[in-house]
Design a protein around this nucleic acid. Structure first.
Lengths: 169, 169
DNA sequence: TATTGTTATACTCTATAACTATA
DNA sequence: TATAGTTATAGAGTATAACAATA
């Protein structure tokens, strides 16, 4: 047997292209809004937003890294940057001296609050503006389905591992 | 009247979160696959793919920049990089001496071909694996609707310009 | 004068590896 | 020994502004 090339149906292809285009435009718009209004990168916004949702406005570095898919060092970098701006504080966890607790400051909350309205408007304008309530519901259902599936079955890699012909290094 | 905060319905919020999560995971997976298999960044892949679709495997810098949302200099940077790797050539346009024509080389086509199967598998695994044919159709319809709307009504910015109260600088 | 593209430059972000400290 | 986080460092990518060449 030869290498069978995987295929997408025309509908899948069309869905993929449109999906990619929308997500790219949405992302761009959101990033611009965050930078213009709050001088925040998207990642920084995500970090602040997570802290804002957390019980005491605090989370451990590791837990944040898990959520935002970052390397430890990358998170340290952002945490430093946010701390210098006074949006978060870093303190050792009382429970585990190894851990660092990132805590949202009052100023951090203000920036978050300042940025939120425009964020939502960007989402509306780029995602929901042209959709009916039924469309939104379907989108919600389908995307929730996909995200649930991804959480349950995280694809290990793009290509299912072959005979070990492709060693990663 | 006070500043009315824009809102998302619970369904919209859920749809937005799931959409963001999926697009982020998909993007990550695709980027990893492109880098592992073809040593290409996502942007570079987009550029090659566009050239691959173009009539003679060639496009003007400006047209590429328009499509990939880049600054001119950023495109120059990528074009140089791709040229050094022998995946594209740069030549002045015969029609307009100001323009530079980017042309896909044979090697560029090979890289594109080498990368494609895994790319498609990543899309299947991260977007379509858990969806029924009907789901895919709905997704296609909804996303096409959104992208069409965005093309027709490109939102100027996140927030619709107010009375000019918020000057950008 | 307007357009096309390049260069110089500076900055942000990300990742790897080596390291320290605590469990 | 394993885990949490930091540091040093290097590299990719992006944007702005000044510039040169052509239309």
């Amino acid at each position: 047997m030869t290498t069978r090339p995987p295929q997408l149906t025309p509908t899948e292809l069309s869905a993929y292209f449109a999906f990619t285009e929308v997500s790219s435009l949405l992302r761009h718009a959101v990033e611009k809004q965050l930078r213009d209004v709050g001088k925040l990168s998207y990642v920084q916004f995500q970090l602040l937003a997570r802290l804002g949702d957390a019980p005491d406005g605090a989370q451990r570095m590791t837990d944040l890294a898990d959520g935002v898919v970052y390397s430890r060092s990358g998170l340290t970098y952002q945490a430093q940057s946010l701390e210098e701006r006074g949006l978060v504080t870093r303190s050792p966890s009382p429970e585990d001296e190894r851990s660092t607790l990132l805590t949202l400051t009052e100023e951090g909350r203000e920036v978050l609050a300042k940025v939120f309205p425009g964020h939502i408007e960007a989402v509306k304008a780029h995602l929901f503006a042209s959709l009916s309530a039924e469309d939104v519901e379907m989108l919600q259902r389908v995307m929730t389905q996909v995200s649930g599936h991804l959480r349950a079955n995280p694809p290990r890699s793009a290509a299912p591992r072959k005979r070990s012909a492709t060693r990663s290094e």
